[in-house]
């Protein structure tokens, strides 16, 4: 298991980022010998720290592939074939951390609690916990049949909630996001997705960054701009270690992108320290 790493010195950092949720996830080939009836055994791996459970509809498989530019979104695809495995949420006592499990996915979410006062444990701690959770799952699968988890995608998402009607703060989306400058015709609401291939030093794509911005309301009815940044792709090897390396690289890409597309004045309000 990797030691808790330190944040890279060159990465932008903020004292009060508008971060609302972070998700680390891995998609893998379904394990041999695993059936849904065993889901309780998987919960037992994490139950001490995640004592609550909820059932959710499954997430469809998602793959980032590359070819022609500007092909738009992948085929919308909703195959329903045979028995579907549910997705389970294993929730921590405070419900601000969630492990999501289904037969081909393991994800770890951290989210702001109801009062918004729980502090972000930082990526460096979350990824160490996620590695331990993946290793527990691999050990469990290995007890069903000799096998390792074969990761085929890894993804990391940062979702930010930017309040638009807080007293003393800017109220237009383009005061926060440089890419949303409509001049005098500020929109009433916004819904956009931008996708870009991430290229390695050899010029070949290794993943994709997806930037989503939508106006919405917070639980108290205040207007917010929801800015979600996701990096997804196939790890260079199907191992857990390689998937974690992808997530570490993805975090750096997201923080750089966040800094690039948000305004200097917003950085000031969020307490940029680097």
């Amino acid at each position: 298991m990797r030691e808790i790493m330190s944040r890279p010195d060159n990465l932008p950092d903020y004292r009060n980022p508008p971060l609302n949720e972070v998700v680390l996830g891995v998609q893998f080939a379904p394990a041999q010998g695993y059936q849904q009836i065993r889901a309780r055994e998987v919960w037992e791996l994490y139950r001490a720290d995640f004592p609550f459970v909820e059932e959710q509809p499954p997430l469809p498989p998602t793959f980032e592939t590359f070819g022609l530019p500007a092909q738009g979104n992948p085929f919308s695809f909703g195959i329903v074939a045979g028995a579907m495995h549910d997705r389970f949420w294993f929730l921590s006592k405070s419900r601000d951390e969630v492990i999501q499990f289904q037969q081909d996915r393991l994800l770890h979410n951290w989210r702001k609690g109801g009062d918004g006062n729980n502090s972000y444990p930082r990526f460096e701690k979350i990824i160490v916990n996620f590695e331990a959770e993946l290793q527990l799952l691999e050990k469990y699968f290995n007890g069903l049949a000799v096998q390792n988890i074969k990761c085929n995608q890894a993804e990391i998402s940062y979702t930010n909630h930017i309040p638009l009607d807080r007293e003393g703060a800017p109220s237009k989306a383009d005061d926060w996001l440089r890419i949303l400058n409509f001049g005098d015709g500020a929109p009433d609401d916004i819904s956009m997705v931008a996708r870009r291939a991430l290229l390695g030093s050899d010029g070949a794509p290794y993943g994709r960054i997806i930037c989503e911005a939508n106006t919405s309301l917070n639980p108290k009815g205040g207007r917010i701009l929801v800015l979600a940044l996701t990096v997804r792709g196939a790890p260079s090897e199907p191992s857990i270690s390689s998937a974690l390396d992808f997530l570490i690289k993805g975090r750096d890409v997201i923080v750089e992108e966040f800094t690039s597309i948000t305004t200097d004045s917003a950085h000031g309000l969020w307490g940029r320290v680097r």
């Binding site: 592939t65 092909q71 695809f77």
Partner: peptide
């Protein structure tokens, strides 16, 4: 497999002019 079918759809969307 469900995963192979989804991968095929993604690949076709990426590669087909």
């Amino acid at each position: 497999s469900f995963a192979n079918a989804h991968f095929a759809a993604s690949m076709l969307a990426s590669a087909c002019p």
